[in-house]
Every structure is written in C-alpha cells, then in structure tokens.
Amino acid sequence: MFYFKCYPTFDVAGVLFDLHRSRAHHWMLRLQLLLESALGKKMALPERKLQSIEDFITRFPSAKEVMIDGTERPIQRPKDHQKQKNHYSGKKKCHTRKHLIVTDLDKRVLVLSKAREGKVHGHSAVGRAKNW
C-alpha cells in the first residue's frame, strides 16, 4: 500500500525495506496481486500517455479540480558534457530529472509525466509536453 500511496523509486523502497532495488520491484509486483485480491479491486498506477485534455477528461471523469505541479529529483552527474548542461538545474544547483504531476482533491496522483532534463523549466515543460 505504501508504494501506491507514495510512488517511491525502487531505490528508496529498497533503502526503507533493506532490499536491493530489483528485489523491491520484484516484491511490489508480487504483493500487488495479493493486495488487489484482498481489496477486491485493481490498483492503478498514474497515467503516463495522455495526448490531450479530452483524453484526461475521458480517463478521469470524476476529477473536477486538479493541481499540476513539478518535482525534481537529483541524479548522478552525467559524464558527457552536453548531458551535464542539459541536466543541470540552476534552481537546485545540481543535476536533476523533472516530472510534472497531476493530482486530484483526494491527493491521488492521476498523471505522472515522463522524466525531462533538469534544465527544462516547468512552464516550458508544460508547453512542450505532447505526452503528459
């Protein structure tokens, strides 16, 4: 349930549960089936490939109000000079990857975009995003 509430990376889940990230992924998949069986419903991960607002409305008809926000997560500094420039975040003063997130009033993550380079600003990412 922790995974579906917080969506941590498998690296973070591995640290929290004292597992290698591959084992954290393995157990999430196995325990997901058990959790779905116990709850009597399928657990849904955030949507990643919406093409338009109409797709969003069709996929989430009950979401009347949403919040769109961005998040940055640090990455290891790339060795390639061009990749270093693209991933350097002036805001965080480190190399990062960014995601846009859409949540509803119940704080469920509905949409999680593909990761973008840290240099891309939030308003630019929204304007350029073809796939949410």
Rank of each mutant, 00 (worst) to 15 (best):
residue 102 V to P: 07
residue 75 I to T: 05
residue 98 K to H: 08
residue 115 A to G: 07
residue 122 G to Y: 08
residue 125 A to G: 11
residue 101 I to M: 08
residue 97 R to W: 07
residue 90 G to K: 02
residue 92 K to N: 01
residue 120 V to K: 09
residue 107 K to C: 13
residue 108 R to Y: 12
residue 116 R to S: 13
residue 78 P to Q: 09
residue 102 V to R: 12
residue 113 S to H: 04
residue 125 A to M: 15
residue 81 H to Y: 10
residue 82 Q to F: 04
residue 120 V to L: 06
residue 109 V to S: 02
residue 127 G to L: 11
residue 107 K to T: 10
residue 106 D to C: 10
residue 74 P to Y: 07
residue 77 R to K: 12
residue 116 R to F: 14
residue 105 L to D: 09
residue 93 K to C: 00
residue 104 D to M: 08
residue 114 K to I: 14
residue 127 G to Y: 09
residue 83 K to R: 13
residue 106 D to V: 06
residue 118 G to R: 03
residue 109 V to D: 02
residue 85 K to Q: 15
residue 121 H to V: 08
residue 90 G to Q: 00
residue 112 L to D: 03
residue 95 H to C: 00
residue 124 S to F: 08
residue 126 V to K: 07
residue 73 R to G: 01
residue 82 Q to V: 11
residue 123 H to Y: 05
residue 101 I to G: 05
residue 120 V to S: 01
residue 81 H to L: 14
residue 85 K to W: 05
residue 79 K to L: 11
residue 107 K to Q: 12
residue 116 R to W: 09
residue 101 I to T: 14
residue 108 R to G: 04
residue 83 K to Y: 01
residue 84 Q to L: 05
residue 123 H to F: 09
residue 92 K to C: 06
residue 106 D to Q: 11
residue 81 H to T: 12
residue 85 K to A: 14
residue 74 P to A: 13
residue 77 R to W: 03
residue 111 V to R: 10
residue 82 Q to R: 12
residue 88 Y to Q: 08
residue 125 A to R: 03
residue 104 D to L: 05
residue 96 T to P: 05
residue 123 H to K: 13
residue 87 H to I: 01
residue 85 K to H: 08
residue 83 K to A: 14
residue 118 G to V: 01
residue 81 H to A: 15
residue 108 R to N: 12
residue 75 I to R: 08
residue 122 G to R: 04
residue 122 G to T: 11
residue 116 R to H: 13
residue 77 R to T: 06
residue 94 C to S: 12
residue 73 R to Q: 13
residue 105 L to G: 03
residue 99 H to Q: 07
residue 120 V to W: 01
residue 77 R to C: 11
residue 112 L to A: 09
residue 122 G to S: 11
residue 104 D to F: 09
residue 100 L to Q: 13
residue 124 S to R: 15
residue 106 D to P: 04
residue 123 H to M: 11
residue 76 Q to M: 05
residue 101 I to S: 01
residue 100 L to E: 04
residue 73 R to S: 04
residue 96 T to D: 03
residue 104 D to W: 06
residue 76 Q to I: 10
residue 93 K to I: 00
residue 103 T to D: 06
residue 91 K to C: 00
residue 124 S to T: 13
residue 123 H to D: 09
residue 117 E to C: 10
residue 74 P to I: 09
